[in-house]
Structures are given as C-alpha cells and as structure tokens.
Design a protein around this nucleic acid. Structure first.
Length: 675
DNA sequence: CCATAATCCCCGGGAGCGAC
DNA sequence: GTCGCTCCCGGGGATTATGG
C-alpha cells in the first residue's frame, strides 16, 4: 500500500514588501530552491502555480529553512513542499523580524510536506535535528489533534486481545527480520556486534539503524546521524488504541476535607457520611460515584454488601456479626419493619492507576529472576537501589523498566525463529511462529519468558494504553488477561478487588454502564493521550493543595482553609506563572541503549529453545519464580482462595435474585462527580 | 466421686505482610 | 515510615477423658 506521512508547519512567507503579490487565502504555492540568489545559496523561494515569485521561506529562525533545504536535498526534489496561504499580508512580527527599524511584511502560511512512507524516517530525523525533538513532536501533536485521522484505526473496532497481540508480534517479526544481516554462514544483527564488542573489552556503541560501530563519546551515530536518545518524529507509544476521551475535559473542584485516615471500615463509614452531607444526598442528588484506592474500595464494597439499616430503630446491622432476624428478635421489632442497605447510594470504583501500580509490582516480582542482572547492569547496584526497583516505589521508573523489558524480550523471543526461517528460506509469518512455539519449543526458560512477555507484560502495556486513551474495552481486556498473575502471587487485596469489580460491572444497568465506560479515565488537560485514572487526578490535586500548606505539620484547620480557597489559589497561580513558565513538553526517550543492554544479556539465555534445559534464572540459579510459589501449596492459602470462591458464588446468587426481581433502579446519568 | 491429664477454646502480644 | 490485618504462638481457663 502506498501511504504518505503528512507534516504541517505553520509559519510565514517573507518578502511581501518586495514582491507585493497578494494571494487569496487558500492558494497553494510551492517551495523551490532559489539557485539564482547570489546572496544566499540556501535560499528557498515560494512560487504560485503561475510560477510567479510570492516570497521566501523565512531565514530566521534558521531551522525551518535548513530543514526544508535538507528535505529537498535528500529526496532530490522528489518531495513536494506545498505552502498554503492562510492569512492576509501583515507587518512582520516576531520571530520573523530581521531588522526592527525596517520591518518587512509577511504572509502567514502553512508549509505542508507529504512524505512517502519509505522516506518518512529520514525526514523525521532531519526535522528532529533541525527543529529539535520537542518542537517536532508538538507539531505532530498539533496535527493529530486538529485533523481527524483519515486512515482506519490500526486497532480493530471490537478490540480483541488476540488480534492486538498478533498485530504486535507480526510488526515485531517484520522489524526483527529487517534487522538481520545475512551472510553465508549465519545471521547477525547489531546486538551481536555489540556483544562481540563487549567480549573484546571495547566499550563501543552500535547504531541500531545502520550497524555502524562508534565510540561512546559520540552522542549521535556519525554514519547515519541517528540519535539513540530520542524517538523518531510522531512516535506515539499508544497509537494502537483509539482515544475515547470525552469532548470536554472534566472540571476538578475541591470539596471539604474529611480529617480521618480511611484505613478501616469504621472510618470509611465516617467518610461516606461526610460525603453524603457535602453532596446533599438524597435531597440534591440521589447517588454518587466514589473512586478510591484499593483498600478503601474493598472496605466500601464490604460495607455496602453487609451493612443494613433497620427502618425502625435506624441502627446499622452488620450481617457478618448479627443476622437480620437476630436483630428483629433482640430489639422486639414487629414484622412490619424492613431493612435496606446502608450505603446503597454510593457506587464504588477502584482507582485504575492503583491497579496499574500493583500490576507493576506483581510483574517486577515475577520477572525478578531475569530482571535482577539486567537492572544491576542498568546502574542499580547497591542492595538498597535494587530493593527500590523491586518494590516498585517509584512507579514511573518501574513502568519504564517494564516497558523496556517488554521491547527487549519480544525481539529476543522472535529472534531464533526469524533466523531459522531466514536460513531455511521460509517466509517469516505469525502463524509459523505460533506453530513453532507450540510444537518445537521445550526449553522452560523460553516458555517462561514467552508467557511473561506476550501475556503479562503485554497486558500491562495494553492496560496503560487503555487508561491513557480512556478506552474501556482495552482496559478490561488487559485486566482480565492480567488477573491470573494477581491470583498466582500474594495479592489478597487485589484478588478480591478484581472479583468484586468484575461482578459490579456486570450488574450495571445499561445507561449506567455506558456512563461508566466513558469515564474509565480522565484527561484533565484535554489532551488526547494523557488520560489518567480518577485516583491520580485526585492525587495531583492533593499535591497541588499541599504545595500551599505552610511549612510544618499542618493541622486540620489549615487543611480546611487551603481546600476551601484552592480554586482561588489555582487561578492566582495560573495567572502569575502562565507567562513565566514554559509549557511542559511531551518527551519520551526510547532508551535504545538500555534495550540493547537487556537484549545482550538475555540472548544467550534464550539460545536454542528447542532443547530441554533446566529451568534457571538468568544468573543460573535453579528457578523458584518467587517465594510465594513455595507457599502456594500450603493449606492457609487454599483456604483464602476457597473464601474468594464463596464470595463469588454469593455475588452470583445475588445477581440472580436481582434478575429475578426485574427491577431496574432509576438512575440519572448526569452530574457524576468523582471524589 | 475425685484427681489428673489431655484437649479445646479464647485471648493478647508480636511478627510479618500488604498497601499507602 | 505508618497503619491495619492476619497469622502464629503461648498462656490460661474451661471442658472432657481417663484412671483409680
């Protein structure tokens, strides 16, 4: 298929005061090299379709001109640079003023470069070089936000886990087989070269694009000028998932603080009462969605499930301690009384970011046998540093490490098959890879990493994508595929949470389900790929409020005061800082080198997967994946799981009762708050 | 019927763990 | 680092079994 990448840059045409050729808005002109200009060999001229000169590409800032020049150079002018007039001529304005005393006139315009897919990477690199990575990314983001995508989404409409996985695998297969350099005896790629360099004691870098070996002192590859630190232009790590963000970003308001630590059921009860009061339940609104961390969520759900209010004496009855009949008998109520659930006006939802956090912890735990060596190669050498990585204290760091691990592992896992196929001349395809893994591979190490990578790490990645883009189906697909790891590890809280949440989601009436799907995550900034769970929105607000607290231990009164005035403070801060501070730019280093390092380490570990080998960790110790496996067989753990199963049946029976009743509660879909 | 031993049950303290 | 939950363990009282 012939595809084009389109890049648009808003700028101006200079020199209107010289040529005085006014063009109607929307006219499309062309950028050509101006060979006749003796003053400036680099000069670029803009001509309209009648070959009349309109003006020049601005010389300052120099980056735009040199970018376009180089683009024309590498393509031998095969790439056409168009220029659409988007405004009427005006006096030159910064940054396009050469001489403040003698300002010229400029025409606002938009330069459009259409790049054939084959050349796109080169052009991107050029643009990154001249315009700077940040700026280029901004342009692309600009483009993506304001022009609706015309090509069908890469991700299918009905997201299917297998499809996603297959797509990733086939993309990677293509990439890996493209990387291989075949000579008569064997294949090799840049990882092999790097490995060899390391064996020889040389500390050289290998360019992952052109296999050029260069010393670590250089930042860019001297051969192809590829900068390993930056992503190519338009790199969107979440491109497979379509964004489903709401059109209007939510407004965040801060309510009255409630001064209890929500760490047991009693205190959660207090918080809920407080919420009821603040939100005027049931007068102003009937119900409320409450997002919370994992533990408060569980407490809340338990309260909702077990605690009833007696209509006669208005006392709370906890059915875990005292059955409803007992209560009736004890207080001598007659038969006319009834019970209703004490917290039925709340809908609890677990914070997606906390789930993600615990996913990361769980993965780190299970990947530890192979991660240990890699991470120490990355620079976490002391025991304390390693512990920090292992416990996942710094979520961003662990996330990054896990993503890099996925990239590295995925490529290495595919490598053997790709090389086999290249040698035998068979085409490399997804089906053949799947067949090969299923039929030929017996090495437990390979299979362990295969499952880890293409099920759990992938699920983690997918979950992250789903949250960023507020895509409900993707999030749920990822969670369901990740869940087994929670149940295998020692994560009692999140096992129960997963179960309760799933049951809850099934039970939502249709209108509510739709609303819930739309609000899986929120993008407060309104950007299409920066959604995050309501829990982190809250934590950010919290951080903001904390920044206004006076030094020292804050007391309740100060908290209250800051919360009540937080909106004013926010406005104030925005007004004061908006002109001074730079907007935060979007950047995501690709960690080429770290990935290379990981690939180097795991390569020998995964060699010859068709042979039976003992199951060992990367450093060669016999594998006990983690200590929880050893505990798994014990009775107590089983008891815990039996309890969960009982809970599940209980919930199912309740669901059946509700279905039998056929009463769908009345709901309002507007005015959903998050707390 | 009594004395003693064995067993059960309850409870509090402490350690470990998970979550924040 | 803190907090709460759970588990474990030992102590002590209550109950039960056993033997004389």
């Amino acid at each position: 298929m012939f595809s084009m990448t389109k890049v648009q840059i808003s700028s101006v045409i200079t020199g209107y005061h010289v040529y005085k050729k006014k063009q109607p808005i929307g006219t499309v002109c062309y950028v050509l090299k101006d060979k006749s200009n003796v003053h400036d060999k680099e000069s670029l001229v803009v001509k309209n379709s009648d070959s009349q000169t309109i003006g020049h590409v601005p010389a300052t800032p120099v980056t735009l001109k040199s970018t376009l020049n180089e683009v024309l150079d590498i393509s031998c002018s095969a790439i056409e640079i168009k220029c659409e007039i988007i405004g009427t001529p005006t006096l030159a304005f910064p940054p396009w003023v050469n001489n403040p005393n003698k300002p010229g006139a400029v025409i606002p315009c938009r330069y459009t470069i259409e790049i054939p897919a084959t050349m796109a990477p080169n052009v991107k690199d050029i643009m990154c070089k001249h315009l700077g990575y940040d700026l280029v990314n901004d342009i692309v983001k600009f483009h993506e936000v304001f022009t609706p995508p015309t090509s069908p989404s890469q991700y299918p409409d009905s997201p299917d886990w297998k499809l996603y996985r297959n797509q990733i695998i086939s993309e990677l297969l293509k990439e890996v087989s493209g990387d291989q350099i075949k000579n008569i005896h064997s294949c090799h790629d840049y990882v092999d070269i790097s490995l060899r360099q390391k064996e020889m004691g040389l500390n050289n870098n290998v360019c992952c694009k052109c296999n050029y070996v260069y010393s670590l002192g250089n930042r860019n590859c001297p051969n192809c000028n590829h900068d390993p630190k930056y992503n190519p232009l338009g790199y969107d790590p979440y491109k497979r998932t379509p964004s489903q963000h709401l059109k209007h970003p939510p407004t965040v308001t801060v309510g009255e603080p409630c001064m209890v630590n929500p760490n047991n059921e009693e205190k959660i009860g207090i918080v809920l009462e407080h919420l009821r009061e603040v939100c005027n339940i049931p007068e102003q609104r009937k119900w409320l969605v409450v997002w919370s961390d994992g533990i408060p969520y569980l407490f809340g759900m338990r309260l909702q499930q077990y605690v009833y209010v007696c209509s006669s004496c208005e006392e709370l009855v906890d059915t875990r301690k005292e059955s409803l009949d007992d209560h009736t008998a004890k207080h001598n109520h007659d038969n006319s009384i009834n019970f209703h659930r004490a917290f039925s006006d709340f809908i609890f939802r677990p914070g997606p970011c906390h789930i993600e956090l615990n996913m990361a912890k769980c993965l780190l735990n299970f990947c530890w046998p192979i991660l240990l060596l890699m991470v120490s190669a990355l620079g976490f050498r002391t025991k304390k540093a390693l512990d920090v990585v292992k416990c996942g204290t710094d979520h961003h760091r662990s996330k990054h490490i896990l993503f890099t691990l996925f990239d590295a592992l995925a490529r290495e896992l595919l490598l053997t098959h790709v090389r086999n196929s290249l040698e035998s001349g068979a085409p490399v395809s997804l089906e053949s890879f799947n067949d090969w893994v299923r039929d030929s591979v017996v090495d437990p190490n390979y299979l362990y990493l295969f499952d880890m990578c293409f099920t759990f790490l992938l699920a983690f990645k997918l979950y992250n994508e789903g949250i960023r883009k507020n895509n409900h189906e993707v999030v749920m697909a990822a969670r369901i595929f990740f869940a087994p790891l929670f149940f295998a590890g020692n994560h009692p809280k999140y096992q129960e949470l997963h179960l309760r949440d799933l049951c809850d989601r099934v039970q939502y009436p249709p209108e509510l389900a739709l609303e819930m799907k739309n609000t899986e995550s929120f993008s407060v900034s309104g950007e299409f790929n920066k959604g995050q769970g309501a829990d982190f929105v809250h934590e950010e607000t919290n951080k903001f409020i904390k920044s206004f607290l006076p030094p020292g231990v804050p007391n309740a009164e100060i908290w209250q005061r800051v919360c009540r005035k937080s909106e004013m403070l926010k406005n104030l801060k925005d007004k004061c800082c908006s002109d001074l501070s730079q907007s935060s730019r979007y950047r995501l280093p690709r960690m080429d080198n770290k990935q290379l390092m990981m690939q180097r380490q795991v390569r020998s570990y995964l060699a010859s997967p068709v042979n039976q080998k003992p199951h060992v960790s990367l450093s060669g110790e016999t594998m006990i994946v983690n200590k929880h496996f050893a505990k798994l067989g014990t009775l107590k753990k089983n008891v815990k799981k039996v309890e969960l199963i009982e809970l599940y049946y209980e919930m199912c029976s309740e669901l059946e009762d509700q279905l039998a009743d056929e009463t769908v509660p009345e709901i309002e879909t507007d005015n959903i708050d998050t707390v």
